[in-house]
Write a protein that binds this DNA or RNA. Structure first.
Length: 120
DNA sequence: ATAGTGACTTTAC
DNA sequence: GGTAAAGCCACTA
């Protein structure tokens, strides 16, 4: 029997990461944010069953969401601030305004447009 | 295995 | 209102 190479762990490709259960739950959670509402990264993480993984949520959105049907623009910082840098920030504000969310100084009022998961 | 990084959050001034 | 530091998770320069 010729020895076979042991399958080594390697870096996940994008396609593989998309199959990652955590990624799927994150995307599903973001997708469940109703139009006109927003959620924080930490909130998404918690809803997805990944408490304290807010930064991970941010990186997942940054890497995959750009060209999918996921409403990434409804995810903001816990204080309602747009955390994206560069031109994408302008897009996010535009997308939010397009669905009736008031954005002032790169920020929204979480008390008004914050998503309450129990109202789905 | 260690160090650095980031679409984060919380706490403490 | 604001900044600073520390804690946080997972990925990687």
């Amino acid at each position: 029997m010729s020895p076979r190479p042991v399958p080594r762990k390697r870096v996940l490709t994008e396609a593989e990461s998309l199959q990652d259960e955590r990624v799927q739950r994150i995307l599903a959670t973001v997708d469940s944010i109703p139009e006109g509402r927003v959620a924080s990264y930490g909130q998404v993480a918690e809803e997805a069953g990944l408490p304290r993984a807010a930064r991970f949520v941010g990186s997942v959105l940054r890497r995959f969401v750009a060209n999918r049907g996921v409403p990434w623009h409804r995810v903001l910082g816990s204080d309602g601030t747009i955390r994206v840098v560069g031109g994408t920030a302008r897009d996010q504000a535009m997308l939010l305004r397009a669905e009736g969310v008031t954005v002032r100084n790169g920020r929204v009022r979480m008390a008004e447009v914050g998503w309450q998961p129990d109202e789905e």
